[in-house]
Design a binder for these strands. Sequence first.
DNA 1: CCCAGAAACACGGATATCCTAATATTTGTC
DNA 2: GACAAATATTAGGATATCCGTGTTTCTGGG
Lengths: 168, 168
Amino acid sequence: MTIGRTLESDPIEEARRQWIDHGWTAAADGMAAVTSIVRAQQIVLQRIDTVLRPLDLTFARYEILTLLSFTKRGSLPMTRMGALLQVHPTSVTSAVDRLESQGFVERLPHPKDRRAVLASITEAGRARALAATHALNGQVFEQLGITEHQINQLRTVLRALRANAGDF
Amino acid sequence: MTIGRTLESDPIEEARRQWIDHGWTAAADGMAAVTSIVRAQQIVLQRIDTVLRPLDLTFARYEILTLLSFTKRGSLPMTRMGALLQVHPTSVTSAVDRLESQGFVERLPHPKDRRAVLASITEAGRARALAATHALNGQVFEQLGITEHQINQLRTVLRALRANAGDF
DNA sequence: CCCAGAAACACGGATATCCTAATATTTGTC
DNA sequence: GACAAATATTAGGATATCCGTGTTTCTGGG
Protein backbone atom coordinates (compact mmCIF):
# COMPACT_ATOMS: atom_id res chain seq x y z
CA MET A 1 0.00 0.00 0.00
CA THR A 2 2.86 2.40 0.77
CA ILE A 3 4.22 3.85 -2.40
CA GLY A 4 7.88 4.43 -1.83
CA ARG A 5 10.50 3.81 0.76
CA THR A 6 10.95 6.16 3.68
CA LEU A 7 12.61 9.41 2.71
CA GLU A 8 15.44 11.01 4.58
CA SER A 9 13.85 14.47 4.81
CA ASP A 10 10.61 16.28 4.14
CA PRO A 11 10.37 16.78 0.36
CA ILE A 12 7.97 19.70 0.74
CA GLU A 13 10.33 21.52 3.07
CA GLU A 14 13.08 20.88 0.56
CA ALA A 15 10.98 22.36 -2.26
CA ARG A 16 10.27 25.39 -0.10
CA ARG A 17 14.00 25.91 0.38
CA GLN A 18 14.48 25.70 -3.37
CA TRP A 19 11.83 28.37 -3.85
CA ILE A 20 13.64 30.69 -1.47
CA ASP A 21 17.01 29.95 -3.07
CA HIS A 22 15.57 30.91 -6.45
CA GLY A 23 14.31 34.21 -5.08
CA TRP A 24 10.62 33.27 -5.10
CA THR A 25 10.33 34.03 -1.40
CA ALA A 26 6.89 35.61 -1.52
CA ALA A 27 5.42 32.42 -2.97
CA ALA A 28 7.44 29.88 -0.97
CA ASP A 29 5.09 29.43 1.96
CA GLY A 30 2.01 29.34 -0.26
CA MET A 31 3.63 26.73 -2.49
CA ALA A 32 4.46 24.62 0.55
CA ALA A 33 0.93 24.97 1.89
CA VAL A 34 -0.67 24.01 -1.42
CA THR A 35 1.62 21.04 -1.89
CA SER A 36 0.88 19.96 1.66
CA ILE A 37 -2.85 20.06 0.95
CA VAL A 38 -2.44 17.95 -2.16
CA ARG A 39 -0.30 15.40 -0.36
CA ALA A 40 -2.56 15.30 2.72
CA GLN A 41 -5.52 14.61 0.49
CA GLN A 42 -3.68 11.70 -1.10
CA ILE A 43 -2.99 10.29 2.36
CA VAL A 44 -6.50 10.55 3.76
CA LEU A 45 -8.15 9.43 0.54
CA GLN A 46 -5.92 6.39 0.42
CA ARG A 47 -6.97 5.47 3.93
CA ILE A 48 -10.62 6.06 3.11
CA ASP A 49 -10.44 3.91 -0.02
CA THR A 50 -8.78 1.12 1.95
CA VAL A 51 -11.62 1.12 4.45
CA LEU A 52 -14.33 1.48 1.80
CA ARG A 53 -13.05 -1.09 -0.72
CA PRO A 54 -14.39 -4.15 1.19
CA LEU A 55 -17.77 -2.39 1.20
CA ASP A 56 -17.64 -1.85 -2.58
CA LEU A 57 -17.79 1.91 -2.25
CA THR A 58 -15.66 4.87 -3.26
CA PHE A 59 -15.58 8.12 -1.31
CA ALA A 60 -17.68 9.89 -3.94
CA ARG A 61 -20.38 7.23 -3.82
CA TYR A 62 -20.22 7.11 -0.01
CA GLU A 63 -20.81 10.85 0.10
CA ILE A 64 -23.90 10.51 -2.08
CA LEU A 65 -25.35 7.71 0.04
CA THR A 66 -24.72 9.58 3.28
CA LEU A 67 -26.18 12.80 1.91
CA LEU A 68 -29.33 10.98 0.82
CA SER A 69 -29.65 9.21 4.17
CA PHE A 70 -29.67 12.60 5.89
CA THR A 71 -32.64 13.94 3.92
CA LYS A 72 -36.21 13.61 5.10
CA ARG A 73 -37.50 11.56 2.16
CA GLY A 74 -34.20 9.89 1.29
CA SER A 75 -34.15 11.44 -2.16
CA LEU A 76 -32.76 14.48 -3.94
CA PRO A 77 -32.63 15.80 -7.51
CA MET A 78 -29.37 14.99 -9.26
CA THR A 79 -28.37 18.62 -9.72
CA ARG A 80 -29.04 19.42 -6.09
CA MET A 81 -26.63 16.68 -5.02
CA GLY A 82 -23.99 18.00 -7.37
CA ALA A 83 -24.31 21.46 -5.87
CA LEU A 84 -24.17 20.21 -2.28
CA LEU A 85 -21.22 17.90 -2.86
CA GLN A 86 -19.43 20.28 -5.22
CA VAL A 87 -19.00 17.78 -8.04
CA HIS A 88 -19.76 17.99 -11.73
CA PRO A 89 -23.13 16.81 -13.03
CA THR A 90 -21.44 14.12 -15.10
CA SER A 91 -19.78 12.76 -11.99
CA VAL A 92 -23.16 12.56 -10.28
CA THR A 93 -24.59 10.71 -13.26
CA SER A 94 -21.82 8.11 -13.34
CA ALA A 95 -21.78 7.65 -9.57
CA VAL A 96 -25.56 7.18 -9.46
CA ASP A 97 -25.27 4.76 -12.38
CA ARG A 98 -23.00 2.58 -10.30
CA LEU A 99 -25.00 2.95 -7.10
CA GLU A 100 -28.14 2.00 -9.00
CA SER A 101 -26.49 -1.13 -10.42
CA GLN A 102 -25.45 -2.00 -6.88
CA GLY A 103 -29.02 -1.63 -5.66
CA PHE A 104 -28.20 1.18 -3.24
CA VAL A 105 -30.07 3.90 -5.09
CA GLU A 106 -32.96 4.07 -7.52
CA ARG A 107 -33.93 6.74 -10.01
CA LEU A 108 -37.40 8.20 -9.71
CA PRO A 109 -39.12 10.81 -11.87
CA HIS A 110 -39.40 14.23 -10.32
CA PRO A 111 -43.09 14.86 -9.46
CA LYS A 112 -43.04 18.49 -10.57
CA ASP A 113 -40.25 18.86 -13.12
CA ARG A 114 -40.12 16.32 -15.93
CA ARG A 115 -36.55 17.33 -16.77
CA ALA A 116 -35.28 16.36 -13.34
CA VAL A 117 -34.52 12.95 -11.87
CA LEU A 118 -34.66 12.04 -8.20
CA ALA A 119 -32.03 9.73 -6.76
CA SER A 120 -33.61 7.79 -3.90
CA ILE A 121 -31.72 5.66 -1.41
CA THR A 122 -32.86 2.06 -0.85
CA GLU A 123 -32.88 0.11 2.40
CA ALA A 124 -29.76 -1.74 1.28
CA GLY A 125 -28.19 1.63 0.58
CA ARG A 126 -29.01 2.89 4.05
CA ALA A 127 -27.52 -0.20 5.67
CA ARG A 128 -24.34 0.00 3.60
CA ALA A 129 -23.93 3.73 4.30
CA LEU A 130 -24.25 3.14 8.03
CA ALA A 131 -21.69 0.33 7.98
CA ALA A 132 -19.32 2.53 6.00
CA THR A 133 -19.74 5.44 8.40
CA HIS A 134 -18.95 3.26 11.40
CA ALA A 135 -15.86 1.89 9.69
CA LEU A 136 -14.65 5.35 8.65
CA ASN A 137 -15.31 6.84 12.06
CA GLY A 138 -13.28 4.20 13.85
CA GLN A 139 -10.49 3.69 11.35
CA VAL A 140 -9.99 7.12 9.79
CA PHE A 141 -11.79 10.08 11.33
CA GLU A 142 -10.77 9.21 14.91
CA GLN A 143 -7.24 8.17 13.89
CA LEU A 144 -5.76 11.18 12.11
CA GLY A 145 -2.64 11.16 14.27
CA ILE A 146 -2.80 14.85 15.12
CA THR A 147 -4.12 16.57 18.22
CA GLU A 148 -7.68 17.77 18.68
CA HIS A 149 -6.30 21.30 18.73
CA GLN A 150 -4.60 20.77 15.38
CA ILE A 151 -7.77 19.28 13.92
CA ASN A 152 -9.66 22.41 14.85
CA GLN A 153 -6.92 24.66 13.46
CA LEU A 154 -7.21 22.73 10.21
CA ARG A 155 -10.99 23.14 10.10
CA THR A 156 -10.76 26.86 10.79
CA VAL A 157 -8.05 27.64 8.24
CA LEU A 158 -9.57 25.51 5.51
CA ARG A 159 -12.97 27.03 6.12
CA ALA A 160 -11.41 30.43 5.44
CA LEU A 161 -9.85 29.10 2.26
CA ARG A 162 -13.14 27.56 1.13
CA ALA A 163 -15.07 30.71 1.95
CA ASN A 164 -12.59 32.76 -0.04
CA ALA A 165 -13.10 30.41 -2.97
CA GLY A 166 -16.84 31.11 -2.85
CA ASP A 167 -17.87 27.73 -1.49
CA PHE A 168 -20.61 29.09 0.73
CA MET B 1 -15.64 27.17 -13.99
CA THR B 2 -17.59 27.28 -10.75
CA ILE B 3 -19.57 24.10 -10.31
CA GLY B 4 -22.72 25.07 -8.51
CA ARG B 5 -24.48 28.12 -7.35
CA THR B 6 -23.59 29.74 -4.06
CA LEU B 7 -24.84 27.77 -1.07
CA GLU B 8 -26.62 29.27 1.87
CA SER B 9 -24.44 27.64 4.52
CA ASP B 10 -21.25 25.65 4.90
CA PRO B 11 -22.05 22.06 3.89
CA ILE B 12 -19.13 20.67 5.90
CA GLU B 13 -20.33 22.40 9.04
CA GLU B 14 -23.77 20.98 8.35
CA ALA B 15 -22.37 17.47 8.01
CA ARG B 16 -20.50 17.91 11.29
CA ARG B 17 -23.76 18.84 12.99
CA GLN B 18 -25.35 15.70 11.55
CA TRP B 19 -22.52 13.62 12.96
CA ILE B 20 -23.09 15.07 16.42
CA ASP B 21 -26.84 14.63 16.15
CA HIS B 22 -26.31 10.95 15.32
CA GLY B 23 -24.10 10.48 18.37
CA TRP B 24 -20.84 10.16 16.47
CA THR B 25 -19.34 13.05 18.43
CA ALA B 26 -15.86 11.59 18.78
CA ALA B 27 -15.48 11.42 15.02
CA ALA B 28 -17.26 14.66 14.09
CA ASP B 29 -14.26 16.99 14.10
CA GLY B 30 -12.06 14.48 12.30
CA MET B 31 -14.72 13.95 9.64
CA ALA B 32 -14.98 17.71 9.16
CA ALA B 33 -11.20 18.06 8.92
CA VAL B 34 -10.86 15.24 6.40
CA THR B 35 -13.70 16.56 4.26
CA SER B 36 -12.16 20.02 4.41
CA ILE B 37 -8.84 18.64 3.15
CA VAL B 38 -10.56 16.87 0.26
CA ARG B 39 -12.49 19.97 -0.70
CA ALA B 40 -9.51 22.30 -0.31
CA GLN B 41 -7.51 20.06 -2.62
CA GLN B 42 -10.26 20.27 -5.23
CA ILE B 43 -10.15 24.05 -5.01
CA VAL B 44 -6.41 24.51 -5.29
CA LEU B 45 -6.02 21.85 -7.96
CA GLN B 46 -8.73 23.48 -10.02
CA ARG B 47 -6.90 26.79 -9.83
CA ILE B 48 -3.61 25.12 -10.69
CA ASP B 49 -5.10 23.32 -13.68
CA THR B 50 -6.62 26.57 -14.94
CA VAL B 51 -3.22 28.27 -14.85
CA LEU B 52 -1.37 25.27 -16.32
CA ARG B 53 -3.78 24.42 -19.13
CA PRO B 54 -2.57 27.19 -21.50
CA LEU B 55 0.95 25.83 -20.94
CA ASP B 56 -0.14 22.28 -21.84
CA LEU B 57 0.82 20.90 -18.46
CA THR B 58 -0.90 19.08 -15.62
CA PHE B 59 0.18 19.41 -12.02
CA ALA B 60 1.75 15.93 -12.04
CA ARG B 61 3.82 16.73 -15.12
CA TYR B 62 4.72 20.16 -13.76
CA GLU B 63 6.02 18.52 -10.59
CA ILE B 64 8.22 16.19 -12.62
CA LEU B 65 9.66 19.02 -14.70
CA THR B 66 10.34 21.17 -11.66
CA LEU B 67 11.93 18.30 -9.77
CA LEU B 68 14.24 17.57 -12.69
CA SER B 69 15.14 21.25 -13.09
CA PHE B 70 16.30 21.29 -9.47
CA THR B 71 18.79 18.43 -9.88
CA LYS B 72 22.44 19.00 -10.77
CA ARG B 73 22.42 17.08 -14.05
CA GLY B 74 18.77 17.62 -14.89
CA SER B 75 18.02 13.90 -14.79
CA LEU B 76 16.78 11.26 -12.37
CA PRO B 77 15.92 7.54 -12.50
CA MET B 78 12.22 6.92 -12.95
CA THR B 79 11.83 5.10 -9.65
CA ARG B 80 13.63 7.84 -7.77
CA MET B 81 11.14 10.39 -9.06
CA GLY B 82 8.23 8.22 -8.02
CA ALA B 83 9.62 7.99 -4.51
CA LEU B 84 10.28 11.73 -4.22
CA LEU B 85 6.89 12.75 -5.61
CA GLN B 86 4.98 9.96 -3.86
CA VAL B 87 3.33 8.60 -6.98
CA HIS B 88 3.06 5.11 -8.42
CA PRO B 89 5.71 3.92 -10.87
CA THR B 90 3.11 3.50 -13.59
CA SER B 91 2.05 7.11 -13.15
CA VAL B 92 5.65 8.18 -13.66
CA THR B 93 5.83 6.11 -16.81
CA SER B 94 2.70 7.63 -18.33
CA ALA B 95 3.61 11.17 -17.33
CA VAL B 96 7.10 10.84 -18.79
CA ASP B 97 5.54 9.35 -21.93
CA ARG B 98 3.59 12.54 -22.41
CA LEU B 99 6.43 14.86 -21.47
CA GLU B 100 8.66 13.03 -23.93
CA SER B 101 6.11 13.42 -26.73
CA GLN B 102 5.96 17.12 -25.88
CA GLY B 103 9.73 17.40 -26.14
CA PHE B 104 10.18 18.47 -22.51
CA VAL B 105 11.95 15.31 -21.36
CA GLU B 106 14.01 12.57 -22.97
CA ARG B 107 14.72 9.05 -21.81
CA LEU B 108 18.36 8.07 -21.40
CA PRO B 109 19.87 4.73 -20.40
CA HIS B 110 21.18 4.57 -16.88
CA PRO B 111 24.99 4.38 -17.06
CA LYS B 112 25.32 1.88 -14.21
CA ASP B 113 22.06 -0.07 -14.03
CA ARG B 114 20.71 -1.43 -17.27
CA ARG B 115 17.28 -2.00 -15.70
CA ALA B 116 16.83 1.68 -14.96
CA VAL B 117 15.94 4.60 -17.21
CA LEU B 118 16.92 8.21 -16.68
CA ALA B 119 14.41 10.95 -17.41
CA SER B 120 16.33 14.03 -18.50
CA ILE B 121 14.85 17.51 -18.91
CA THR B 122 15.40 19.36 -22.19
CA GLU B 123 15.97 23.07 -22.71
CA ALA B 124 12.37 23.43 -23.85
CA GLY B 125 11.33 21.64 -20.68
CA ARG B 126 13.32 24.02 -18.50
CA ALA B 127 11.80 27.04 -20.20
CA ARG B 128 8.26 25.70 -19.86
CA ALA B 129 8.78 24.77 -16.21
CA LEU B 130 10.04 28.25 -15.43
CA ALA B 131 7.08 29.89 -17.17
CA ALA B 132 4.71 27.61 -15.26
CA THR B 133 6.36 28.41 -11.94
CA HIS B 134 6.06 32.14 -12.51
CA ALA B 135 2.40 31.79 -13.44
CA LEU B 136 1.63 29.58 -10.44
CA ASN B 137 3.52 31.83 -8.04
CA GLY B 138 1.62 34.92 -9.10
CA GLN B 139 -1.82 33.44 -9.66
CA VAL B 140 -2.07 30.67 -7.07
CA PHE B 141 0.63 30.43 -4.42
CA GLU B 142 0.55 34.16 -3.57
CA GLN B 143 -3.25 34.36 -3.83
CA LEU B 144 -4.59 31.77 -1.41
CA GLY B 145 -6.86 34.26 0.28
CA ILE B 146 -5.76 33.38 3.80
CA THR B 147 -3.29 35.14 6.07
CA GLU B 148 0.40 34.36 6.26
CA HIS B 149 -0.20 33.16 9.80
CA GLN B 150 -2.87 30.74 8.60
CA ILE B 151 -0.61 29.50 5.82
CA ASN B 152 2.03 28.62 8.36
CA GLN B 153 -0.52 26.94 10.63
CA LEU B 154 -1.56 24.85 7.65
CA ARG B 155 2.02 23.87 6.86
CA THR B 156 2.71 22.91 10.46
CA VAL B 157 -0.41 20.83 11.01
CA LEU B 158 -0.20 19.05 7.68
CA ARG B 159 3.48 18.31 8.25
CA ALA B 160 2.44 16.53 11.46
CA LEU B 161 -0.20 14.60 9.57
CA ARG B 162 2.25 13.64 6.84
CA ALA B 163 4.91 12.65 9.35
CA ASN B 164 2.39 10.47 11.15
CA ALA B 165 1.59 8.79 7.84
CA GLY B 166 5.25 7.90 7.40
CA ASP B 167 5.95 10.36 4.63
CA PHE B 168 9.44 11.22 5.82
C1' DC C 1 33.67 -18.70 -6.94
C1' DC C 2 29.11 -19.96 -8.84
C1' DC C 3 24.47 -20.20 -9.55
C1' DA C 4 19.57 -20.42 -8.27
C1' DG C 5 16.12 -17.71 -6.24
C1' DA C 6 14.50 -13.24 -4.79
C1' DA C 7 14.06 -8.47 -5.58
C1' DA C 8 14.01 -4.27 -8.38
C1' DC C 9 12.86 -1.81 -12.59
C1' DA C 10 10.02 -0.25 -16.36
C1' DC C 11 6.24 -1.17 -19.21
C1' DG C 12 1.56 -2.73 -21.23
C1' DG C 13 -3.30 -3.88 -20.59
C1' DA C 14 -7.61 -3.39 -18.17
C1' DT C 15 -10.47 -0.67 -15.16
C1' DA C 16 -12.39 3.34 -12.78
C1' DT C 17 -12.81 8.14 -12.27
C1' DC C 18 -13.05 12.94 -13.52
C1' DC C 19 -13.50 16.70 -16.76
C1' DT C 20 -14.89 18.86 -21.30
C1' DA C 21 -17.93 19.27 -24.98
C1' DA C 22 -22.05 18.36 -27.24
C1' DT C 23 -27.01 16.86 -27.29
C1' DA C 24 -32.06 16.08 -26.43
C1' DT C 25 -35.74 17.28 -23.60
C1' DT C 26 -38.26 20.29 -20.65
C1' DT C 27 -39.17 24.60 -18.39
C1' DG C 28 -39.26 29.55 -17.86
C1' DT C 29 -39.40 34.33 -19.73
C1' DC C 30 -40.20 38.45 -22.45
C1' DG D 1 -45.15 31.99 -29.09
C1' DA D 2 -40.09 32.52 -29.90
C1' DC D 3 -36.00 32.25 -27.43
C1' DA D 4 -33.10 31.44 -23.50
C1' DA D 5 -32.04 28.58 -19.52
C1' DA D 6 -31.98 24.32 -16.91
C1' DT D 7 -31.65 19.18 -16.46
C1' DA D 8 -29.63 14.90 -17.31
C1' DT D 9 -27.20 12.16 -20.34
C1' DT D 10 -23.69 10.39 -23.73
C1' DA D 11 -19.20 10.38 -25.88
C1' DG D 12 -14.33 11.26 -25.75
C1' DG D 13 -9.84 12.47 -23.67
C1' DA D 14 -6.73 12.39 -19.80
C1' DT D 15 -5.18 10.47 -15.53
C1' DA D 16 -4.37 7.12 -11.81
C1' DT D 17 -4.36 2.63 -10.02
C1' DC D 18 -4.05 -2.54 -10.10
C1' DC D 19 -2.15 -6.61 -12.07
C1' DG D 20 0.90 -9.18 -14.70
C1' DT D 21 5.25 -9.63 -17.68
C1' DG D 22 10.05 -9.49 -19.23
C1' DT D 23 14.50 -8.02 -18.13
C1' DT D 24 18.25 -7.02 -15.09
C1' DT D 25 20.50 -6.93 -10.67
C1' DC D 26 21.36 -8.51 -6.11
C1' DT D 27 22.04 -12.04 -2.53
C1' DG D 28 23.16 -16.11 -0.06
C1' DG D 29 24.01 -21.06 0.28
C1' DG D 30 26.88 -24.60 -1.76
